[in-house]
């Protein structure tokens, strides 16, 4: 290595690929989190209140709209904006919970497999292969048929969706990290394995895990909304974006907005998360990017 001139400018951080789109994505997702936390405060109407005289009112710019219902009303005269807010709250909260559950479970399993090795490792790897080999959507449908549709079953299915990918990533990274200088140094200093994993290795492998979360989150939204759409997930009186869309499908000829509005919310949310994830990935791991 030759002497570097002192005036050398440090390497510039990579310019974001789509700054405007990434910013818009971040704003949209913050909005969704806001709705998740405070839907009840934002709702102009009770989401279950029916009004049989004001059924299927169109949304704002269309002729015949009702200023009291800016997004229109459904086949029972319920305010679509209020229903959308509650549905968004349910869908986002479930997706968030499912993603976190999967991430924690999968990462823990990965650590366990790497730490214990032997038959534990073999058993976890066999489970990972099994999970990857079966389409989880179909397994979820079958389990809902066998065990019935209870909320905890549904949540468990969402949490188990995609756990194996965290396990794969964590196991591989931990095995590599353990052989690296810093982990061996702390080990030589007498730190117990748990301390090394939690305080030294986990922060070092967090990047790929976060990227995986950004991939898993939109997929979990699609998983929940798809199941609810075909009538096997969230069911009335509860509501989710998929259930709203599935409901609105029956009125496409007279009231297209009932199906389109929830669809737009789902699409924008998954899109925003994927955009943000792509951006994050190129920042966290430049080697993956062009």
């Amino acid at each position: 290595m030759t002497d570097l001139p002192l005036t050398a400018t440090p390497a510039k951080p990579r310019a974001p690929r789509m700054p405007a789109l990434v910013l818009a994505s971040a704003i949209w997702l913050s909005l969704m989190i806001g709705v998740m936390l405070a839907a009840q405060l934002l709702m102009p109407w009770d989401f279950e209140a029916t009004d049989l005289l004001g059924r299927m009112k169109p949304p704002f710019p269309l002729a015949g709209y009702d200023p009291a219902h800016p997004l229109g009303t459904d086949q029972l005269g319920r305010d679509l904006l209020s229903r959308l807010l509650v549905a968004t709250q349910t869908s986002i909260a479930l997706a968030l919970l499912g993603t976190v559950l999967g991430a924690v479970l999968g990462t823990a399993a990965g650590f366990l497999a790497a730490h214990r090795g032997g038959w534990v490792d073999e058993a976890i790897s066999a489970l990972v292969d099994f999970q990857a080999a079966m389409p989880w959507f179909i397994v979820a449908m079958a389990v809902l048929a066998f065990l019935g549709n209870a909320m905890w079953v549904f949540l468990l299915l969402m949490g188990l969706y995609g756990w194996e990918r965290y396990t794969r990533i964590t196991r591989g990274l931990v095995l590599t990290a353990r052989e690296q200088g810093y982990a061996r140094a702390v080990h030589a200093l007498g730190a117990p394995p748990r301390w090394i994993y939690a305080r030294h290795i986990l922060p070092n492998i967090l990047g790929p895990l976060i990227v995986q979360i950004t991939i898993n989150f939109p997929e979990t939204i699609l998983f929940e909304t798809s199941l609810s759409f075909i009538g096997l997930g969230i069911r009335p009186p509860l509501t989710s974006l998929g259930q709203l869309l599935g409901d609105g499908r029956d009125y496409m000829i007279n009231a297209w907005w009932l199906a389109v509005m929830p669809g737009v919310v789902i699409f924008l949310s998954t899109l925003a998360m994927s955009m943000l994830g792509d951006h994050l990935r190129s920042r966290l791991d430049p080697s993956l990017e062009d």
Partner: peptide
Amino acid sequence: VFGFSMPNFFLGILLIL
């Protein structure tokens, strides 16, 4: 990114409409 963020049930409904 747009393609795989699109839920297929929503794409189907937009196509039908």
